[in-house]
Simulated scan of single mutants.
Amino acid sequence: MDVLLQCLSHTPLMQYISPGDAVRDRNTQALAQLKTQLQDFDPELIFLFGPDHYNGFFYDLMPAFCVGVAGETVGDFDTEKGRLNIPADIARACAGSLLEQGIDVAISHRMQVDHGFAQPLQLLAGAVGRHAVVPIFLNCVAEPMTTCWRARLLGEAVGRYAATLQRRCAFIGSGGLSHNPPVPQLDDAPADVAERLIAGRNPSAEARQARQQRTIAAAREFARGTTGLRPLNPAWDRQFLDTLAAWNVERLDAMQNAAITEHGGNSAHEIKTWIAANAAFRRATGGRAQVSVHYYEPIPEWISGFGTMSGRGLRG
Rank of each mutant, 00 (worst) to 15 (best):
S108D: 09
A210G: 03
V158K: 05
I260Y: 00
L38W: 04
E100P: 00
F171E: 00
M309D: 06
V133Y: 09
V128C: 11
R26Y: 06
I172G: 03
L244T: 05
E221T: 13
Y161D: 00
Q212T: 04
E156P: 01
Q256Y: 00
D21A: 15
G200M: 08
A258Q: 15
F281W: 00
P120L: 01
N139G: 13
F57T: 12
R224Q: 15
N233T: 01
R196G: 10
A118V: 04
A95L: 04
A70P: 04
G307Q: 06
L84H: 08
A259I: 04
L38V: 12
D242K: 15
D114K: 00
A189C: 14
V183M: 14
L154C: 08
F58L: 05
L31V: 12
A217K: 11
F171K: 00
A210Q: 14
P298T: 02
L121K: 02
E221S: 14
K81T: 12
H131Q: 10
I136V: 13
E195V: 07
A170R: 03
R152D: 05
T73Q: 06
A170S: 11
P182I: 05
L186E: 14
D2H: 10
H53E: 13
C94I: 14
P144D: 09
P144I: 05
A151T: 07
G56Y: 00
N202R: 10
A32I: 06
I271G: 01
L241T: 00
G225R: 04
F240V: 05
V141Q: 08
R238W: 05
P181S: 10
N27F: 06
F58Q: 03
D42Q: 14
I172T: 01
S174L: 00
P203S: 05
V158R: 08
S292P: 02
D242F: 07
R283H: 15
H179F: 03
R83N: 12
D42C: 13
P231E: 02
A194D: 07
A218C: 07
G313P: 04
R168I: 01
D76G: 06
M62H: 06
N278F: 03
L34N: 05
V249H: 08
A95P: 02
K35G: 06
Q101H: 12
L5T: 09
L4W: 06
R312V: 08
T261S: 13
V183R: 00
N278Y: 12
L5I: 11
V291E: 08
S267C: 02
A189T: 10
L61S: 11
L8M: 12
L197F: 14
A223P: 12
T36K: 13
P190N: 12
A217N: 15
I107Q: 12
E301K: 03
H109D: 15
I216S: 01
D192F: 13
T215G: 12
G287A: 09
M14I: 13
D42S: 11
L98N: 02
A235Q: 09
E221N: 10
L232S: 01
Q209C: 04
A91R: 05
A191D: 11
E301I: 03
N27M: 08
P190D: 13
A127W: 05
A246I: 06
Q33M: 11
L244Y: 03
L177V: 02
W247S: 03
F47Q: 09
F281T: 02
V128G: 07
